[in-house]
Design a protein around this nucleic acid. Sequence first.
DNA 1: ACTACATTTCGCAATGTTACAAAATGGAGA
DNA 2: TCTCCATTTTGTAACATTGCGAAATGTAGT
Lengths: 132, 132
Amino acid sequence: MEISNLDAAIAATRALGHPARMRTAAMLRSGELCLCQITEVLSLAPSTVSLHIKELKRAGLVNERKDGRWVYFSLADDEHARRWIEPAMAAVEGDPQLADDLSRIAELRRLALVDLCSLGYEAAKAKLEQQG
Amino acid sequence: MEISNLDAAIAATRALGHPARMRTAAMLRSGELCLCQITEVLSLAPSTVSLHIKELKRAGLVNERKDGRWVYFSLADDEHARRWIEPAMAAVEGDPQLADDLSRIAELRRLALVDLCSLGYEAAKAKLEQQG
DNA sequence: ACTACATTTCGCAATGTTACAAAATGGAGA
DNA sequence: TCTCCATTTTGTAACATTGCGAAATGTAGT
């Protein structure tokens, strides 16, 4: 089953053509993330975010790395992926929504995944501050 | 009513994320075209093609130039449009479907618009050959 | 084996997209 | 003014996407 250049290009543009997925791609530029981190920033149900990421993977823009219970997603780095991700990221450079997302991600990275995923952001943050 | 970088990027990627619209953009690289020429190549209803082009215009990727009864469409050439069209065209370089479209467009350009639009390709071609 | 839990898949409702035909729009020429 | 006709808009049906909650999957630790 061959995938033509046209089909691959359509898949990539469609994948980026949704705010949740464009924002996800932008977040992943800062490094790999697991589902619950992305879910927290997007404020969507985990099942919904999982489907969005599936679409990004299907388009060849995102890779996954499984580590026990967690799955870490990262931007693909081959020619096809770079061809689409670079102009997209250049185009959204400086967008306030994405800047917010990135600073949110920076906060989230300071929290233990096991707390963030199961307790949610507020509780995980409280726990971190309590423990020093 | 401001349009953010994110919204503009989503509009552009969504616009290119459909075969009819990606093919239209590729055809327009060879120069401006009117609706009936694009319709002939895509084999879709004129009303459908009109909507696809409207989407490309809305995304800022295509301009129009009215000349009497006809409307000529062309690729936009500003920073926003080039940012999306160039990688897209590089990505689909060499795709057989698009190569077919381009050679079809080259044929169509030899026909009088008034014949192609009202009579269709076969009849317009017959008329051209008859007249020399 | 059992429990806990991050992620995925499934079922379903709401919404958006895509296609066509038919009617409306508007410019060109009689 | 009247007709012709390229294009656009409208109405509508089929289909795809997006979202959620609930159930399923699979791994870690007890």
